[in-house]
Simulated assay, not measured.
Amino acid sequence: MELDRRNMCAPGPPTWITPPANPTAEALIRAKLKEYRNKCKERDRLILEAKQGGLTEVAIAELSGHSRNTVRSVLKNHGVS
């Protein structure tokens, strides 16, 4: 079984995902890409929240572990400079 990381901040005990018996390679890749997309949405939300909270791009990059270019790109994509 695998820990469901989509709702890690939700209150209560963690939920577990039971994988299919024999998933195909394509199904595994699709699942990984969907999980990655969700992580990117969360990353973007946190970066925007940090910027609105008054942190600089440099501080956000250092605290998040992302490059300053990534932080700048996220802010630009969401219309924040």
Rank of each mutant, 00 (worst) to 15 (best):
R45F: 09
V71Y: 03
R72G: 00
L48W: 01
V80Y: 14
N7I: 03
K41R: 15
K76L: 05
G54I: 03
T18P: 01
A61S: 13
S67N: 00
N22W: 09
A61F: 05
R37C: 05
P14F: 12
R5T: 14
R72S: 12
L48F: 00
N77E: 14
T18S: 10
A25L: 14
H78K: 08
C9M: 12
P19C: 07
L75E: 01
K76I: 04
I17D: 08
R72C: 02
A59R: 11
I47W: 01
L3N: 04
A61C: 08
T24A: 10
R68E: 13
G65T: 03
R43G: 05
L33G: 00
I17L: 15
T24W: 04
Y36F: 09
M1E: 06
A61M: 06
L63D: 06
L46H: 05
A10Y: 11
L55T: 00
K32V: 01
K76V: 02
L75I: 00
I29V: 15
T56N: 02
A25I: 13
V74H: 04
N69G: 12
Y36M: 08
E26S: 12
I29Q: 08
M1A: 14
V80L: 11
H78P: 01
S64I: 03
I17N: 12
L75Q: 02
E2I: 03
T70Q: 07
N7R: 14
T24P: 04
A31Y: 03
R37Q: 14
E49H: 08
E57Y: 00
R30G: 02
P20M: 08
H78A: 07
L63S: 10
N69T: 08
R68H: 00
R72E: 04
R72N: 08
T56W: 00
A31M: 08
K32C: 03
I17M: 11
D4R: 11
T15N: 11
M8P: 00
V80S: 01
K76N: 09
S73C: 06
N38Y: 10
E62A: 13
L46E: 11
